[in-house]
Design a protein around this nucleic acid. Structure first.
Length: 535
DNA sequence: TTCTGAATAT
DNA sequence: AATATTCAGA
């Protein structure tokens, strides 16, 4: 029975179910070993001679994941060597009582993955699965035996799911995560290799924690994978990361490279591993979901909240780009980038560059930028449009045919000195920055006076930096004819046009406004100005 | 070719 | 509604 990727639930207790071919001419020894292995949930098939074993391997190669072959101290060793030479696709562990370096050497040279001296401790046996993993990840295409293909698929899925799960629960996941993190900044092959290296590395705890459950089929994908796989060059950091990962994986530390592991397969291995590892490198951030909001992790972790990483990660067929969750944190970075660039320089590629968010693509940014602009356009119907680059050379305008709100000329001097009111009369100087100040702070360059008049004062700000106005305040002025007071009232009328005019002030007549607008060369007038219908 | 922004799809 | 994807122009 082959363990397929769909049988992940059966792999809940990995390496439970891994099938071990045991070749031992000594039946007592074989029985003992078998019982030990079965106690660890391996499935053991025992053979007494190499011919039977080889026959089984050739007739149903999918039935064995790993072999343990006894090198007998009494009989000649030809049987085990023959097995080694023939069953090259099967990771084979040699075991023996004899302490002969020459024999060991020969076994390894013939492709044995390890030579274990008897007695075999539980620890040694427990971790023979690592050879399966190692083999699975270091063989590609036709070099990957039938039995290992599903194993590899499952393993890849498991790795993703493990990392996706968020909380490192054991050494295994910690290692995986560390390895992924290291990919980012450390070009030196290191921890990641451990995952694939021979069991001589410190043994890892195992158990039923590698899989969250069998419901992984519905997960969609890794955030980055499509980019990576399609050689989208936008996600440079990701690619770099992945490259490192590949380097680590394809250059396993201390793995025997005998006749079974020709270096020539590396290229193929790389191609084969790209997906999985890239997913992994994305995931490393996701495990920090909700804890670490720092820059480059933002997207990945956000993605985690949205889509999770699928078992189908390596299955190119099931790919679909997951959505970026533009959390306030991420949006803040976006806005900061836009601000830093200045509105007219804020184009996707530059924003992306400034945001320095791993996994975020130009497309993501472009899409968000589009929404951002739309939003602002909606909020700031006129003034701020000028801050966005206009494609004059293009027939279509970026802001086509929207009524441009006229700017009442007799307000302009006040406005200029006081600062543009908002939102009716113009844009805030840097509306996108607002959210960073929050509702209780001010842009540093803003004068005290303008702060006083600034409608942002005490205004709540939404995620887009759009003020959410409190209910209009009704100031109770003691109206006198004093110029100072008049001036103040006029200013307020200018700056808070949405408020009713104070007693004693009359709105300009429609005609006079239109006439003035016309005189200023402004012919397009919105139906509403200052809250009053002009028409 | 690549990038951008708008339009369209999901 | 939010985001991805597609498309056409530069």
């Amino acid at each position: 029975m082959v363990c397929t990727a769909d049988d992940l639930s059966a792999w809940k207790d990995f390496p439970k179910g891994l099938k071990v071919l045991l070749l031992d001419e000594d039946s007592d020894s074989a029985a003992e070993l078998k019982s030990k292995l079965e106690a660890m949930d391996y499935i053991v098939y025992t053979f007494c001679n190499e011919n039977e074993a080889l026959s089984a391997v050739s007739s149903r190669p999918e039935s064995f994941h790993v072999a343990i072959v006894e090198v007998s101290s009494t009989n000649n060793n030809n049987g085990c060597f023959k097995f080694l030479e023939t069953a090259k696709d099967l990771p084979t562990i040699m075991t023996s009582n004899i302490h002969c370096i020459g024999t060991m050497m020969k076994c390894i040279a013939l492709g044995a993955v390890e030579f274990l001296r008897k007695p075999l401790s539980e620890e040694k046996l427990r971790n023979i699965w690592q050879h399966v993993v190692h083999k699975a990840f270091n063989s590609a295409g036709r070099d990957l035996s039938e039995s290992l293909k599903p194993v590899k698929e499952s393993l890849v899925s498991m790795l993703h799911l493990l990392l996706e799960n968020g909380e490192p629960k054991n050494d295994y996941s910690n290692k995986a995560e560390d390895a992924s993190v290291i990919h980012e900044n450390d070009p030196e092959p290191s921890t990641a290799s451990d995952m694939y290296s021979a069991p001589s590395t410190p043994q890892l705890e195992q158990g039923g924690r590698l899989l969250p459950g069998g419901d992984c089929q519905d997960h969609t994908n890794c955030l980055i994978e499509k980019e990576s796989c399609e050689q989208d060059r936008e996600s440079k950091s990701v690619e770099t990361t992945s490259d490192n990962s590949i380097a680590e994986v394809t250059a396993p530390v201390g793995s025997p490279r005998g006749p079974r592991g020709p270096r020539g397969t590396n290229v193929k291995v790389e191609a084969d591993l790209v997906d999985g590892i890239k997913c992994e490198s994305t995931l490393c951030s996701q495990t920090k979901n909700g804890v670490n909001n720092k820059d480059s992790n933002a997207v990945a972790e956000n993605a985690n909240t949205v889509s999770g990483i699928p078992s189908s990660c390596p299955n190119k067929a099931n790919r679909k780009k997951s959505k970026v969750d533009w959390t306030p944190e991420l949006h803040k970075k976006f806005v900061q980038a836009v601000d830093q660039l200045g509105i007219d320089q804020a184009i996707p590629s530059r924003i992306l560059e400034l945001m320095k968010v791993k996994g975020l693509t130009r497309h993501n940014v472009a899409s968000h930028l589009q929404k951002y602009r739309m939003h602002r356009r909606h909020i700031l119907p006129k003034g701020d449009d000028r801050r966005w680059p206009q494609r004059d050379h293009m027939q279509r305008s970026c802001y086509p045919h929207k009524p441009i709100m006229a700017f009442p000329p007799y307000y302009s001097s006040h406005v200029a000195s006081i600062g543009p009111p908002y939102p009716m009369w113009g844009p805030p100087p840097h509306p996108s920055s607002i959210q960073m100040w929050g509702s209780h702070s001010y842009p540093p360059w803003q004068s005290v006076e303008s702060r006083h008049w600034n409608p942002y004062l005490g205004v709540h700000v939404d995620a887009w930096g759009c003020p959410v106005m409190p209910p209009p305040l009704r100031y109770c002025y003691t109206f006198t004819q004093a110029d100072e007071v008049v001036d103040k009232v006029v200013k307020e009328a200018i700056n808070k046009p949405w408020l009713p005019l104070p007693l004693g002030l009359k709105p300009p007549s429609t005609d006079s406004v239109l006439a003035e607008l016309s005189r200023q060369g402004i012919s397009t007038v919105p139906p509403y100005i200052n809250g009053r219908n002009l028409f």
